[in-house]
Each structure stands twice: as C-alpha cells, then as structure tokens.
Design a protein around this nucleic acid. Structure first.
Lengths: 212, 212
DNA sequence: TCATTTATGTGCATGAATGAACAAAGAGAA
DNA sequence: TTCTCTTTGTTCATTCATGCACATAAATGA
C-alpha cells in the first residue's frame, strides 16, 4: 500500500477516526459529515477534513463521507487488514493488565508473546499468552518475526532490557517505564509516562484555579 | 505559591525534569548543566534553558544549575510538597495495575479510594486502597476532598460514569477508556489511549520502512 | 429545471514550539 | 588581577498545527 507523507499530528489522529468509524458502521450509519465526527472525536471539523484530504478527495460535497468507504480506506492505511503481533517485556502489574487488554477488537493488534525473568511465571501461559524467559527473547522475536515490543519492566532494568530488545531486532518500543531510554536512531520509541501525565493534569488544574 | 504563565509544552516537561533531578540528587550530584540534563531527558538543551527561564534566572553562567536549589524550586511549583489524593473509578485489569503503581515515590500522588460496581470487590481493601460501591462516589469524594479521578471502566459505561463523577465534583480526569468523554467546560480531561498509541507507533514504523 | 441548502476541500492568518546561534556573565586557572 | 573557558539566557528564523472563512460542488426540493 503506497502511502502519502502525513503530518505527525494527523497520523496520531488516524486510529481515533478509525475507531469511531467502526462504531458508526456498527450502528448502521451510512454517511457521516465532518461536523458530526467532530463532535464525537472532539477535533475541529476543518482539521478532520484536512486530515482526510491528505489521502485524496474522500468525501462528496453536500453529502459527507461514506462510512463503509472511509472505513475500508483507513483499514488499509492503518494496516488493519493484517494482524500485527507485538511482544510484551516485563509481566508485572501493568504487564498483566496489558495482557488482558483487548487490542484486537478494534485494532487488530495482538500480544503474541511475553518475557520476564521471574521463574514463577516463565514457561507458563498467562491470559492466553506464553511467557518466556528473557534468555529466549532473541530467538522468539526472530521466530515470530516481531519488531514491536511493549516495555513494562522496573525502571532499574529499563535501559538494560531495552538494549537486549534492540539487540534482538526490535524496531518500535512502547515504553511504559519512567526512564527515557536511549535507542539506536532507526528505532522508534513511544513513551507512555503515567505518573507524568497525572502530574501534568494536577499542574494544569492548579493553574486553572489560580486564574479565577 | 504564585505561578507564572507557562506554555503547555513546558508544563508537560516539568514532571520529567523533576524526576531526573531526584535521580541526580540521590546520586549526590551538586550541579548540572542544561547539556547534561538534555542527554538524560532527551530534550534540546536550549529548550531546557528556556523552560527553566520562565521561572526566573535559576542557573549561573559558566557553572550550570544547582541541583538542590532546582529540586526545591520544582517541588513547590509542582505541588510536590503536599500529597495529592486521587480516586480510581473502575477496578478492572488496568485499575488493579494502577492500584499497585507507585505514584507516591517520585510524585507524591496517592490513590486514596477506588470505586466499582462489582459486589465481589466493593467493601474490601485492595493493595491498601478501600474499594467503595459507585453509589458512595459523591459522599466519599466530598468527604476526602478529592477533585481528580482516574477513569478505568469499560468503554460502554465511560460517559455515564464520567457524568456521575462530574456530578460529584471531579475537576480533572485521566481517561483510560478509548471513548472521548464530553465534559463540562471547567473540567480537564487527559486522555491516555493505549491502543491508539500503539497503533500510531505501528503506523510510523511502516512509513519509516517505506522511506528506505 | 432552477434555487436553495449542505458540506467538502483549501487558502490564509495566527500562534505555538523548536533548535541554532550568540552575547553576556560568571567560574576557574595562571 | 587578568585571561580563558564554560554555560546561561535570549534572539531569531523556521516549522508545525489550528481553525476561520469561503469558493466550489453536489444533493435536495419545488
């Protein structure tokens, strides 16, 4: 599937559009306007139209967008037509929760293997996912052709574990540790920093308060 | 504590700086330069200097920043000198994980109560946190003077539950559901959309691949 | 058929964020 | 003290993102 050069901000919104298109489709809606969608996803309607327009003229003036059309289109753009397997590294509290998180339903993503160092959980199958010892990382990722991993180990092991992952050929990391791991230039790291987000929320609330 | 008007992007980085300052302090470092910090937090050094400068001239030319000074300063800015209590609404997989997540160590945030509708877990104490029935939401939040909540209920109940929270006086929500909840104008909502982030990562990886 | 309404696609102006570059200030050495 | 070196604080140019506003095109109804 040939892809156009899309602004970063747009690319971040695509999965959101996709999810709401699924909802609309399941609700039996045939068409949708940028204004309707705007209400649902809370993005300005002009931004939505521009986002869509990067892929060509997908809508019809005076009508809106055909839901089925749009859905099929985004499915291809977002590689939703093929299942993406990812690895989970670190099966602690958060890791466990993610194992049970249903990425598959609206995203066609599946955690197909997990890794840990704790002998009590390695060698077993948790929530339908086999848990291997870290020593098997390279072999398994290679066998299963996995290039994306979710990192949920304790901070202390974050960088060391990340290095092992890069060694094993990981190209993209979703980093749940509070450490900013350093990675080779060709690797994408997406940080999800729970404590920081919460604290930012608190900060903004306080400054809201002071304005009034 | 009087606060200056800070750009959004800067405010988002403050907790990150704070965390690394703690690490530096614990490692016994007395001073730090913007360049050193830049390596650690992966933010351009000029941006760091500018971020700091919003609060006044905190550094010394030719020397850098005094770690203890800076730390004390950020502690106040970020309200780290007082404990912030938050509520957790929805004790499923993710909720459980968050109950065990240590927000307190470097952020002085504590989940002090949780809510659910499942009679099997309400009325009990999980990971040191009491779990109440949803019917007690308003009373408890009022008693404990809590204005921030983490929302981890199933998508289907997201909006309805959110409405109850607003009714109970919640001012800030960290929304882990994939639904964009609609909220009163004075309420801040921070969305943490795991599936979307993962999918965005996949999208960027694919477009990286196509460039080469 | 023709007028009216609806909703797209895009030009434009504005604002935010970034990072390079550098003058100024202070630290440290001689 | 005086010189050199380091590192800040800030200016500036650039890029990115946003949302208004509107011309254009299609749909709908009379």
């Amino acid at each position: 599937m040939e892809k156009v050069k899309i602004p970063r901000a747009t690319a971040k919104r695509l999965p959101l559009y996709y999810r709401y298109l699924i909802i609309l489709s399941e609700a039996g809606k045939e068409k949708v306007s940028s204004t309707e969608l705007s209400d649902a996803v809370q993005v300005d309607s002009a931004s939505i139209r521009r986002d869509f327009s990067y892929f060509g003229a997908l809508g019809k003036r005076g009508y809106g967008y055909d839901v089925k059309n749009l859905l099929g289109f985004f499915k291809k753009i977002l590689n939703q037509d093929t299942l993406t397997n990812v690895a989970l590294v670190g099966v602690g509290n958060l890791g466990h929760a993610l194992l049970n998180y249903n990425f598959k339903r609206s995203n066609n993503i599946r955690i197909s293997c997990a890794f840990d160092i704790d002998k009590n959980i390695t060698g077993r199958i948790l929530s339908g996912v086999p848990v291997y010892d870290m020593s098997e990382l390279k072999q398994q990722l290679s066998d299963q052709q996995i290039s994306i991993a979710i990192l949920t180990v304790p901070s202390l092991h974050a960088q060391k574990t990340a290095d092992e992952m890069f060694e094993a050929g990981i190209q993209g990391v979703m980093n749940f540790t509070p450490i900013r791991i350093s990675a080779p230039a060709n690797v994408r790291v997406q940080n999800v920093d729970l404590a920081t987000e919460l604290q930012t929320l608190i900060y903004f609330l306080d400054s809201d308060k002071q304005e009034h």
